[in-house]
Write a protein that binds this DNA or RNA. Structure first.
Lengths: 328, 328
DNA sequence: CTGAAAGCGCTTACAG
DNA sequence: CTGAAAGCGCTTACAG
């Protein structure tokens, strides 16, 4: 591949100076129609595209947003990506997508990203020291960070109000023996599951708890099936997220148990595909368009100096809400 | 937001020259440990990050890949995005994601993208003139382009062999009245549906054909339901893609028709979520990891000059294959 | 081990 | 309407 044409080549070919080329390429005033056409013709002839580096060095408004996600095969993340790219595009920003799923070296990958972008949104999953070092001076908005102490901006999720609504709903339907199907390291409990349990307890509904490792679909299904067999009298299953809830629906179907008549099933996320399965999945839904929009506004505000890079002013909260469909 | 620190500021703060800062920042040899530490300390103090523009102007290896997708809420596209970002990351490339779903002005958006990246993969959907103009000199690999004449590189899909396998399978199961649920403009037929029909015809299995507009999930479901009601004797439904097939499963369930005993249902794509629904979806599956890897290798090879920017050497073909699960 | 000089490809004043 | 000069922030030879 030969050396790309530069502004110098175009100027020479058109017989003009370099800044006349600039004027023609950027549709600036103060250039005759003839000259402009001649320059544009030369540019086309040479397949000239202005270098983003030359331009970036001299123009101030850089608009490259890094988006760090965990696993694009869980539809939750694409829905977030869709919302963020949409909001970013409306502001004239481009989005660099980084999927950390198969990253062997999180630090190196994110360090590399931090050099390519002007602001960052997403799930970083770094220890505080690394994060401070890699992203010093870069506006960062974390999505639903697990860490208590926030270094940066954040959009946090509030599951509890919707969970309260759900417990009320389940109690009214006569649920007595809820089972939580959690996603967490072995013998641990996720923050989500803790909220499930505390709200169920408040209503006098103690729950059983099982943990499913995130492995392949097949392994997850087997683990869910085994859990259901150990708790045959469960009359409601609260899943860590919609994807696991689909697995629960699947396992219940295989066992001939009717949903919602015999067992009620509830997920978390509000994936749009939950509307396509039968029975349609009842879920604690997040408005992902909202999350993406808030995160983008926040990080762009931080970038432009209207919002501080950390502290309460750099935080937004989004509530889940109970989306009653058919499964509960 | 104050002016970011430059290499000059760090040099002044550390009391060294600019290229000593370069040596320290880039872990180059020929610098004493003391000096390096002093420089790094000054850099940290000033939150210094080297400008990607300054560096890009002087270094040759730019690694920014544009990925143009249609609709991230169809899981097909995230699976492709996951494969491409994975392959790109292994080669040290970053990926700029552009979702064209809500783009009002395709040309402007893609023109902007073309200035930000060094190579492009995806669904461009431009007329040949615009494409040639906007992407002159940029390596481009289109995914499954509808156009006959290819301007650039391409990864094309070959549905026919798998369709042949499917027809054989359906015929052996006694299917007599297949129905194609297509996705296309009103009164049109998609390329996919044409292949369905021609392969069914070859086996003496004429099919009915209905078109479903891509609207909301609700509208799609209603249209599918209406189509099924107009063709109550259909004993197999071939859907344009997996997402529509999920809708078909849903509509059949609502109507109390058993799958696969009374009606067989087949999708196209091979989405992993097809393994989670009941019955698990039989589908003409694409190995998306393969597609993403081939497209990335192709476009990076074009970029490095080892593969021409167009012509037969810039094309790869990926076959669907029949993935028999439970629905057919 | 360290630094002075040159140059990457652009755009921004400024001068004519 | 057009061009000569300066400079953006970095790295690459090259010289000491």
């Amino acid at each position: 591949m030969q050396r790309p044409a530069t502004i110098h080549d175009v100027a020479a070919a058109a017989g003009v100076s370099r800044q006349t080329v600039t004027r023609a390429m950027n549709a600036m005033p103060g250039i005759s129609v003839d000259t402009r056409n001649r320059v544009l013709a030369a540019a086309r002839e040479l397949s000239y595209r202005p270098s983003r580096f030359g331009r970036g060095l001299v123009k101030a408004d850089h608009r490259m947003l890094g988006l760090v996600l965990d696993d694009l095969t869980n539809p939750f993340y694409p829905q977030l990506a869709s919302a963020v790219t949409g909001a970013a595009a409306r502001a004239g920003w481009n989005v660099v997508l980084t999927d950390m799923t198969h990253a062997t070296d999180r630090e190196t990958l994110l360090g590399d990203l931090s050099r390519q972008v002007d602001a960052v949104i997403g799930y970083l999953g770094l220890d505080p020291d690394s994060q401070a070092r890699l992203f010093a001076g870069v506006p960062v908005v974390e999505i639903d960070p697990t860490r208590r102490q926030l270094l940066n901006g954040a959009v946090t999720f509030d599951l509890r109000p919707s969970m309260r609504d759900l417990v009320r709903h389940l109690a009214a339907r006569g649920v007595r023996r809820p089972l939580v199907v959690d996603q967490a390291p072995p013998d641990r409990e996720s923050g989500r599951a803790r909220i499930f349990r505390s709200e169920l307890d408040r209503r006098g509904l103690p729950c059983a708890h099982v943990t499913v490792a995130t492995g392949s679909t097949g392994e997850d299904l087997a683990a869910i099936g085994a859990a259901l067999d150990r708790h045959p009298d469960a009359d409601a299953v609260l899943a860590y997220n919609d994807l696991l809830a689909f697995g629960v629906l699947n396992a219940l179907r295989t066992r001939g148990r009717r949903v919602p008549e015999q067992v009620r099933v509830i997920g978390v996320d509000g994936l749009s595909i939950g509307d396509l399965v039968v029975p349609r999945l009842t879920t604690l839904a997040l408005d992902m368009a909202d999350v993406g929009r808030l995160a983008t506004e926040l990080v762009l505000g931080m970038r432009s100096g209207q919002i501080p890079l950390s502290g309460p002013a750099a935080r937004r909260k989004v509530r889940h809400r109970l989306l009653l469909r058919d499964s509960a």
